[in-house]
C-alpha cells in the first residue's frame, strides 16, 4: 500500500503552481521594493538535540531582521557566545561548553556525524555547545536551560528520548532516465502510536541534509506498511545558487546514499512540519503564512530528542 504525505505533495504543488505562474504570467513579474517595519526585538534561536549514547548538542543563534544580509561575516555574528547552557536529566545537571566545529579533527567530525543529528560536518562551520559528561538514555526526559549573557531572557525547554525506530524494510530505485533515478523506501509501522519519524540523507561525500517534508506521523497508517520516495534535498548550502536551482528531487546513478531513519518526539515533528510549510509558503501565493511551532520558552527553535538507525544503498551505474 502506498503512502501519501501531504507535505511532499504540497511541495510539489508549489512547484506546479509556480511553474504555471511562470509560464502564464512570467512577463508580468518584477521586483517589488517594500519597506517592512523593523522587528520590535530580535529573538534567540535554539537548535539542540539529545540522542542515545551521544552528548547533548546545542546551537545558539540570534534571528536577523528582514533587511539584514547573510554573508560569511554576518553568519558568524549570529552565534551567541558565552551563554550558560545547562542540560538536566532530573538527577544530573551539566553545563555545556562552546566549541567551533572546524577546531575538531575531520575524522572525528565524520565519525560523530553518523550519530548526531546536528550537521557538525557542515560547511561553513558552526559553533555549538556540548559536554562529555552526559549522554542520552532512551526513555529519559532532559530539560534545557539557557542563560544569555547581558540579557534577562532565559530560554527553557524539555524533551524525552523515544525508543528505537523499526528500520526501513527495503530501499530500491526507479529509473527516471539514463542518469537519474528515484529512491523509494518501504516501512512497516509498528502498532504502537503515536510515532513520529524523520529522515536525513547523505549523498556520497556531502553532509547529511534534511529534505523538506521529511517528517512523518503514523496517525493515518498506524500498524501498516507504507512506501514513499526519498528526496536528496539541499545538503551543501555553501555555494548554492538560490536564483537558478530548485531543490533536487532525484539521485544520480552511482551515488552512495546513507539514510538516518529516526524516531523523534512530537514537538520536533510539529517544528519540522511547520518549518517546511513556512519556507515553501514564502514563494507560494496559494499558501498562507505559517508560524513555526517552537518548544523553546522565551525563544525560537527546537530542543528535541532523536533515536536513529543508519541504513544505506549504493545505486548501480
Amino acid at each position: 500500500m502506498g503512502m501519501w504525505s501531504c507535505e511532499g505533495f504540497c511541495f510539489r504543488f508549489v512547484v506546479c503552481g509556480l511553474g504555471v505562474c511562470l509560464v502564464v504570467l512570467g512577463g508580468c513579474q518584477k521586483p517589488l521594493e517594500l519597506r517592512l517595519p523593523d522587528p520590535e526585538r530580535l529573538h534567540y534561536v535554539v537548535e539542540g538535540y539529545i540522542e542515545p549514547g551521544v552528548p547533548p548538542v546545542v546551537v545558539l543563534m540570534r534571528s536577523m531582521g528582514f533587511r539584514d544580509t547573510l554573508s560569511m561575516q554576518t553568519y558568524y555574528e549570529l552565534f551567541v557566545h558565552g551563554a550558560v547552557v545547562r542540560v538536566s536529566d532530573g538527577s544530573q545537571t551539566v553545563t555545556l561548553r562552546e566549541i567551533r566545529t572546524d577546531t575538531l579533527p575531520g575524522w572525528l567530525l565524520s565519525g560523530l556525524q553518523q550519530f548526531v543529528t546536528l550537521p557538525l560536518d557542515s560547511v561553513p562551520p558552526l559553533y555549538f555547545y556540548t559536554t562529555v559528561d552526559m549522554v542520552g538514555v532512551p526513555g529519559r526526559t532532559y530539560s534545557l536551560e539557557v542563560v544569555i549573557p547581558g540579557d534577562t531572557v532565559v530560554l527553557r525547554s524539555w524533551t524525552r528520548i523515544p525508543g528505537a525506530p523499526r528500520p526501513l524494510d527495503s530501499l530500491w530505485v526507479v529509473p527516471v532516465n539514463d542518469s537519474m533515478v528515484e529512491l523509494w523506501a518501504r516501512f512497516a509501522d509498528p502498532p504502537e502510536t503515536p510515532q513520529y519519524y524523520r529522515y536525513m540523507v547523505k549523498r556520497n561525500w556531502e553532509p547529511f541534509c534534511d529534505p523538506l517534508g521529511n517528517v512523518i506521523e503514523d496517525r493515518y497508517f498506524n500498524g501498516r506498511t507504507i512506501t514513499f520516495d526519498i528526496n536528496p534535498g539541499i545538503c551543501n548550502i555553501y555555494g548554492y545558487d538560490f536564483e537558478e536551482e530548485l531543490p533536487p528531487t532525484k539521485f544520480f546513478r552511482g551515488d552512495t546514499v546513507v539514510i538516518r531513519w529516526c524516531r523523534i518526539d512530537g514537538a520536533q515533528y510539529r517544528f519540522w512540519l511547520t518549518l517546511g510549510f513556512a519556507i515553501s509558503s514564502l514563494s507560494n501565493p496559494f499558501a498562507g503564512p505559517v508560524r513555526v511551532e517552537s518548544n523553546i520558552e522565551g525563544g525560537l527553535g527546537i530542543w528535541g530528542s532523536t533515536h536513529c538507525v543508519v541504513q544505506g544503498i549504493r545505486i548501480p551505474e
Binding site: 536577523m64 550537521p119 539541499i234 525560537l300
Partner: peptide
Amino acid sequence: ATLPTEFYLIRFMLVPHYT
C-alpha cells in the same frame, strides 16, 4: 498582508518569523 519581519537560520535554511 502578513509578511515576516525576521528570519532565523536552522540548518542553513532561512526560516521566516511572523510577529
